[in-house]
């Protein structure tokens, strides 16, 4: 709660700053906790429903916690033409969850985005904000295997 207070202070408790405030909360917690929304509504004195509308309208907000790794497949036009959809399908098979969901073990959040502004290198996949240009299903499987192995190795060391 103190952190939220600090974020509100950074901008000022005014309506015009609420989107920035929510963006910073999202950046800090990787989602918008319900309490945080209620706190902001109370401090900025705007109806809770307005915040809830904002939180569900814009892409960058999420009301549920994210996984340890966030995988984003670009489905912008360039990436779509070069096979982005196939990457989505491949990930659905690999992870066993659908786009927009979190794996049951909480390891991977799987999302799609529409253009990350590097279309010349389509199709792109972002894993934890790192760009993987000119992705193929093969390469994707390999990267996933590496992430999984890294975790196993970490767990093996007590």
């Amino acid at each position: 709660m103190q952190e939220i207070e600090a974020i509100i202070e950074r901008y000022g408790a005014q309506r015009r700053h609420v989107i920035s405030i929510l963006q910073d909360i999202q950046a800090r917690f990787h989602y918008l906790p319900k309490d945080a929304l209620m706190e902001v509504a109370a401090r900025v004195r705007i109806p809770l429903i307005d915040l809830y509308s904002i939180a569900t309208f814009y892409n960058c907000f999420s009301l549920l916690p994210r996984g340890e790794h966030v995988i984003k497949v670009c489905l912008g036009t360039a990436c779509h033409l070069k096979g982005g959809t196939r990457l989505v399908e491949a990930l659905e098979r690999e992870l066993g969850v659908r786009e927009g969901e979190l794996t049951p073990d909480g390891r991977f959040s799987f999302e799609t985005v529409r253009c990350v502004g590097a279309c010349a290198l389509a199709p792109l996949v972002l894993i934890d904000e790192r760009y993987y240009p000119k992705m193929t299903q093969r390469k994707l499987t390999q990267v996933l295997a590496r992430l999984r192995r890294a975790r196993q190795a970490a767990e093996a060391v007590p």
Binding site: G76, T77, A78, R114, C115, G117, A118, C119
Partner: peptide, 11 residues
């Protein structure tokens, strides 16, 4: 805002 998916001029 450059929302056109597949473009990055303004960026």
């Amino acid at each position: 805002d450059e929302g056109d998916p597949g473009a990055f001029m303004d960026r």
